[in-house]
Design a protein around this nucleic acid. Structure first.
Lengths: 110, 110
DNA sequence: CAGTTTGCTACATTATCCGTAGCATACCGA
DNA sequence: TCGGTATGCTACGGATAATGTAGCAAACTG
């Protein structure tokens, strides 16, 4: 499955609405987690990122990184490793409050 | 794979950190989309929801709905169909700005 | 020149998803 | 009482995606 692009039909939507492409992308396995590990300008090498994600298989990791790079959310810097782009940072700042929500969730679920 | 719970080990994390469980849940296929279709208190029948999601197979849809119900994000109301719980609404309000972001993204990607 | 680290690929196995068909229950009008 | 329709949902077989292990080629390091 190719990386979702706004304007193109994606899984479950032929209209090309940007939000649909985004939901498709973010809903792919490991994408949210990868973003989470890279937030706040943190750059990680392929292997460090793999480790941070609890040992994802390099196959999927690489595929997701390609998806994210195609979407201009992540970039590979020579000698620095992978890092969020400016756009990627903006997107992930939006997801930051999820951490708080999750903590409340944990308290309630007990 | 069982529905992720805060406090329990999930895919890629054995620590039980709530955010990890949440990222696992939200990263499952169709979860974000289902939430998106149900936002703002909208209740949809199983079949209407299936249609709204572009014809997802009922197998996965049911599995995801079960995940979401286990997480108390979604509930099935007799005669009303599926709807977000209060917690679910709060979570989805956080994701609302994604729509704006996606639109800017679309403009840039052109 | 051996050892390490880099990003990444190959390959076989397993898990997940998909599409279609269909079941059981409940309602609704004739 | 008999379709017809809608409900939530399951069965099943085939397609697709993810996993785990091994390893390669290039760059750097001692």
């Amino acid at each position: 499955m190719p990386a979702p692009k706004p304007g193109k039909p994606v899984r479950g939507s032929k209209t090309g609405r940007p939000i649909m492409a985004l939901l498709d992308l973010l809903g792919r396995r490991w994408v949210l987690r990868i973003g989470w590990e890279l937030h706040d300008g943190r750059a990680l090498s392929f292997r460090a990122l793999q480790l941070a994600c609890g040992g994802v298989s390099p196959t999927v990791l690489n595929q997701r990184l390609r998806d994210l790079r195609d979407a201009d959310l992540v970039e590979l810097l020579d000698g620095e490793g992978y890092r969020l782009t400016k756009d990627g940072e903006v997107l992930l700042e939006m997801l930051a409050p999820l951490d708080q929500w999750a903590k409340r969730w944990a308290r309630k679920t007990k």
